[in-house]
Design a protein around this nucleic acid. Structure first.
Lengths: 211, 211
DNA sequence: CGAGCGCTTGACCGGCGTCAACACCCGTGG
DNA sequence: CCACGGGTGTTGACGCCGGTCAAGCGCTCG
């Protein structure tokens, strides 16, 4: 597992609380904004979205987490979740109790380092979403999202989302998202791989980058 | 100081490397993206902007840090800075060597907790900028920034920035920013307090929120 | 007092939002 | 097995917000 990959036997012997393996169906809520937290989640399979409600009631997707990412890190500091977390697909996750992480982060330098890297990655990812995906024309944003969501071990394939979710990620209306995807397909940068509009083949990575 | 506020004498005795007090003029660069890091900065006075260059060369301001915030936390995990940091005003900062933080974060539970809170706050702040300030109409964004940048101990006053900087923060052009500020002044939500267009009085907090 | 820079304002235009119709997929029930 | 209905994606027409280009103003600093 992501966090515990390089722990030794002594580290493991200090884990007393149970680490739950959980599965969620698409669209189910892993936790809500402000909810008090039992533990932190590692994503093993599938994708989840982190959703913020703005002070005037609109909903905004701030990030998408994929296998290897941690959800709810903020609970380590505050014991509460700062954002809502919703499954975009079927997902399987591990829930690691806060007590385990608190104990190990002070008693295992290896986990301490791991955790710090996770914080750093989460912060960089947040800045990436702001700087890369919420800047520029609609075309650039959709192209950027398609590139970011490429399958890590099949970089010529990518997975998109429901059009209104993509709108909430990119600050666009769903019709605009749809139009831009159609345009990218028409121009030969993407090719649909299913009839549901989720999986696409990346035909021209470079032109996607510089759209 | 922010990070060391609740350390005890034993903790302090473990600090061997010097902690530098530094001052920077407005517009000077504290560090650049990718640069290898000597330490982490705490902002004592003034403001700095964190700037990201997108892969196609445009510049984007991802956040503004104010007194009490930490700049360059990511260096704790990677020894490199992920974003460029530039002074928006005259600033005074402390540079805390990485070695000090690495040592204390494993030997002082108090600092360890502090650091975690700083990570959490930075991540929440990043999400705030995305969810609150880069969503909705130009009017809403400018109003949101004016509210966010209120003086902590004089909430009826706020500090804005050069119009092109505000544009890079809100994903707007400087002309649009200028127009929206003028409109907010005309409508009696803000009032200029100087001739440089930086300090404004917040006349109607509620209407700014719900613009 | 003049040059230069940043802010404001105006006129015009284009990209994205809005509203609406339609196509397509899929599950349901007859 | 097919007819139907709802949900989601696509496409079109049109209008408006914000971008573009340009002129003018006011402050600051030689």
């Amino acid at each position: 597992m992501v966090l515990f990959a390089d722990l030794n036997e002594q580290d493991f012997s200090q884990i007393h609380s149970p680490i739950d393996d959980l599965a969620f169906a698409s669209d189910s809520v892993l936790y809500t904004e402000g909810e008090s937290a039992l533990g932190v989640y590692t994503v093993r399979k599938g994708m989840v979205k982190l959703v913020r409600s703005t002070s005037d009631g609109r909903e905004r997707i701030v990030r998408v987490l994929r296998p290897g990412d941690l959800a709810g890190l903020e609970a380590l500091a505050t014991s509460r979740f700062d954002t809502e977390c919703i499954a975009l697909t079927e997902v399987s996750v591990c829930r690691i109790p806060l007590s385990v992480l608190h104990h190990l982060s002070t008693h295992s330098p290896r986990l301490h380092l791991r955790l710090m890297q996770k914080w750093q990655h989460a912060l960089k990812d947040a800045d990436d979403w702001l700087a890369e995906l919420n800047f520029g024309t609609a075309r650039q944003r959709v192209a950027g999202l398609a590139l970011k969501m490429r399958d890590p071990d099949h970089p010529t394939q990518t997975t998109l989302f429901a059009r209104d979710d993509m709108g909430a990620m990119l600050d666009l209306k769903l019709e605009t998202v749809s139009r831009e995807i159609s345009a990218l397909v028409r121009d030969g940068l993407l090719k649909p791989m299913d009839k549901s509009g989720r999986r696409y083949a990346v035909l021209d990575e470079n032109r996607l980058q510089w759209v």
